[in-house]
Nucleic acid binder design. Structure first.
Length: 215
DNA sequence: TGCCAGGCCCTCTTTAGGGCCTT
């Protein structure tokens, strides 16, 4: 089973593109070690301009809540310290990664953390799910669900439990004992039809590796 | 002036288009 630490994180933002001037308004993250959440990070942040009613309606975060929140720069500096060089996970990671990189670049920080996407991996592990939205996957996997979505820490926690469940499913389905982070990254880029053969090969590799240690 | 995301996957693909997913 996976043993190395990962940090699952999520941003709520003013829109969909930092290149169009959008910024985060909340970050939430959970640190997972040995299949358990051992630490969390959460903060609202003031983007420096008012957010639209559309974003308010999605997130439940209002301009009044952001008025006295610390600025993005302050929060992101703390968040950079929280993640360090730990491998990162997010649901639809390309979305959150662009905001992470954009904000940290403004602080002259250039994170090189490895990153994996729980959405792309879930398409491989749960090909029969109705779709691969976070809410659907939480329901599909029968995970604890308080029906609160689109808040950063809530979504990070749920994605964290989804990540653990995907590791468990790989173990239970294919018998793969160790699930290193690079293996998950390989999986998200794998063609759907090749997943089964991929795991069969990995199991054989691990068994051979164990035999090599014993001999 | 008018428009405005973007990265990835899938397939009836690759000389491309449509859909998914995030806010």
């Amino acid at each position: 089973m996976q043993e190395e630490a990962v940090i699952v994180f999520d941003f709520e933002t003013t829109g969909s593109s930092p290149k169009m001037g959008d910024r985060p308004i909340e970050v939430g993250a959970v640190r997972i070690e040995n299949r358990m959440i051992v630490d969390t990070f959460q903060s609202l942040m003031n983007p420096g301009f008012t957010i639209t009613s559309f974003i308010e309606s999605i997130t439940g975060i209002g301009n009044d809540m952001l008025l006295n929140a610390p600025p993005c720069e302050e929060v992101m500096e703390q968040f950079a310290a929280f993640i360090g060089t730990t491998p990162l996970v997010a649901h639809n990671a390309s979305f959150d990664r662009q905001f992470l990189d954009s904000e940290l670049e403004q602080l002259n920080l250039y994170p090189e953390n490895a990153m994996a996407c729980s959405m792309l991996i879930s398409r491989r592990i749960f090909p029969n799910a109705p779709n691969h939205k976070l809410r659907t996957l939480i329901e599909y996997c029968g995970l604890a669900n308080n029906d609160v979505f689109h808040r950063a820490l809530e979504d990070a926690e749920k994605t964290g439990h989804l990540w653990i469940t995907m590791c468990d499913t790989i173990y239970e389905t294919y018998g793969l004992e160790k699930i290193p982070f690079p293996l998950m990254q390989q999986l998200e880029k794998m063609k759907k039809v090749k997943v089964e053969a991929f795991f069969e090969r990995k199991v054989v590799e691990q068994k051979n590796s164990m035999l090599h240690l014993w001999n």
